[in-house]
Amino acid sequence: MVESVETAGAASGVFITLEGGDGSGKTTQSELLASWLGEQGRTVLRTREPGGTEVGVEIREIVLHHRGHIAARAEALLYAADRAHHIETAVRPALARGEVVIQDRYIDSSVAYQGAGRVLGGEEVRQLSLWATEGLLPDLTVLLDLDETVARGRLDAAEKRFDRLEAEKGAFHARVREAFLALAAAEPERFLVVDAALPVDEIAALIRARVAALLD
């Protein structure tokens, strides 16, 4: 059973997730959105998956920085384990307190990266995460859409050490992008798709407008 925040027993909490390929600007936009919401008097929890809890930090180190091979199904299960703990111990309590949760990555990332990127099957991976989270879906998902070659250029320019997923070849990231866009097309009422090649301030304004409507 899929739950909205309201049916999940939250007070006036709002659950917002940011999705997109690596290098699309999710962290920047989540920071800007959290700052703006704070100015509006909202209490905000900014978090991420994997790594939003102490347990999640350890899982993140395994799935993103383990030097050896990780079987694709094991990878999917590790993400689901992080998600189950994170939702139960961090997200649901914040929503119950009436806070706005802004989260970098959620179920849609697993559908895109493990379902499509690893070719495990999107529906199977989605059902695994829905079971792990007892069906909790966001009120709004912002998809920052960016051509995978442009995204790779951004990552290269940042001169950072690539994690296991960032280091995958272009075909992997093309499948991920296609999967994100398919998810958005299937649930237009939940998704806001934004061209991540736009200037940062323009992207932030588009997100604020959608969030303001959600909060009214």
Rank of each mutant, 00 (worst) to 15 (best):
L181C: 08
R48V: 08
H173S: 05
G25V: 00
H65Y: 03
R208G: 05
H69D: 07
D82V: 05
G21W: 04
S12H: 04
I207Y: 12
F180V: 06
S12I: 02
A196L: 00
D139H: 15
G13P: 08
R60A: 06
P138S: 02
D22C: 06
H85Q: 07
G52L: 08
I203E: 01
D145R: 14
G38V: 05
A212Y: 02
R118F: 09
T27P: 00
A185L: 04
P50L: 00
A96E: 04
P93W: 11
A196R: 10
V176I: 04
L155G: 04
P50Q: 10
L64E: 11
R175C: 01
P199S: 01
L32Q: 03
L143S: 15
Y79L: 12
R67Y: 01
E99V: 02
E189G: 05
R83W: 12
E159K: 11
F172A: 03
I107A: 12
E189Y: 02
V57W: 11
R48C: 07
D156I: 13
Q40M: 08
A197R: 05
A72N: 12
A212D: 07
E49S: 01
R92L: 08
V111M: 15
T43F: 06
F180Q: 09
E189W: 11
T149G: 14
V211E: 02
L198M: 10
A179H: 10
I70W: 07
V14A: 10
H173F: 08
V101A: 07
D22N: 00
W36C: 13
L37M: 06
A174Q: 13
E168F: 03
V142R: 14
G41R: 15
E31W: 06
A174P: 14
H66E: 04
E39I: 02
G38I: 02
L181D: 03
L37V: 09
L143E: 13
F172K: 03
S24D: 07
V63D: 03
A8C: 01
S12A: 09
A174C: 00
R126A: 12
L198R: 09
T141R: 10
R46Y: 01
V125A: 15
E134R: 11
A182P: 03
R164C: 06
D195W: 15
E19H: 12
Y113N: 13
L120W: 10
E159P: 00
H69K: 09
L32Y: 13
A80N: 12
D201P: 11
R210G: 07
Q114W: 14
S24H: 11
L183A: 05
L140T: 15
S35N: 14
A204G: 10
V55P: 14
I102Y: 07
S24Y: 00
A184C: 05
A74G: 12
A34I: 03
D195P: 07
L206A: 12
S30P: 00
E49R: 04
